[in-house]
Computed example of a mutant assay.
Amino acid sequence: MRFTDFTAFDLVLLAQGLGVNLALFLGTSLIGLVIGIAWAIVRYYCVPVLSACITFFSELLKNSPVLVQLFLVFFGLPGLLHIRVTPVTAAAITLSANTAAFVYVIAVSGIESIGRDQLEAARVFGLSRRQVLRHIVAPQAAAFAVGPLIALLVNQLQVTSLISVIGVVDLTKIGNILNMRTLKPFVVWTAVGLLYFAAAKLVAFVGSRFEKRLRAHSAWRGL
């Protein structure tokens, strides 16, 4: 067997690399969703200074390259704060914050899509702001935002391919290693691309099923 040949173990390496991407994607997406929704709730309650700070921070994250954010967290924070940041930790922090920024924008758009007449009617009937948020704003905003959120999550899965540049041994890093070893870039990067494509289609499929169920539930409740 020549040094440049593929082996059966290469499939295991590719699967392990994809597992790293999926694990980081799932973890950072969950953290980003929680933080982004929390930011949107702060905006809903109009907390003066905090709302402005959150809006500024989300705009900064949304409108700067993720790769630059990765470098700032991985190389900048250790130099500034004199702490040790591992590649996985840097990737988790960056992707979570970036996801939260986009979730915040989507959640705010969902909240603002609700007609003012519904909110005013709810207050006439004596509902508190918390009750309005729980029973009127949240269900309708979720139904509005689920489509954009699915598109965001598919995009964030693709963004995980950038984490290899700071040393995380993910699918892209494994692909680069196999490419240098086999000298067959077309085969290697086609396989890597197909694995990302399959993962993205799975996320889109699960998201579309969830969207249908959520919309059906909202329609049944007359929302």
Rank of each mutant, 00 (worst) to 15 (best):
L11D: 07
V12W: 08
L14N: 04
L18C: 08
N21F: 01
A23H: 08
L30S: 11
G32N: 06
G36K: 10
W39T: 09
R43G: 02
Y44L: 11
L61S: 00
L67R: 11
V68R: 04
G79T: 03
I83P: 01
R84H: 12
A90D: 05
A91T: 12
S96R: 02
F102R: 08
Y104N: 15
Y104S: 07
S109G: 06
G110N: 00
G110Y: 07
I111V: 14
L119W: 10
A122Y: 06
A122I: 07
R123C: 01
V124E: 00
S128K: 11
V132D: 05
H135R: 12
V137N: 01
A138H: 09
A141G: 02
A143M: 04
F144G: 03
V154N: 07
L157W: 00
T160D: 00
S161K: 06
L162I: 15
S164Y: 15
V168W: 02
T172P: 01
M180N: 14
R181S: 03
L183H: 07
L183Q: 14
L183K: 09
K184T: 08
P185T: 15
P185G: 06
V187Y: 13
V187G: 07
V188N: 02
T190D: 08
A191E: 11
L194A: 08
L195K: 00
L202M: 07
F205P: 00
V206G: 09
S208I: 06
F210K: 02
K212A: 13
R215P: 04
R215M: 04
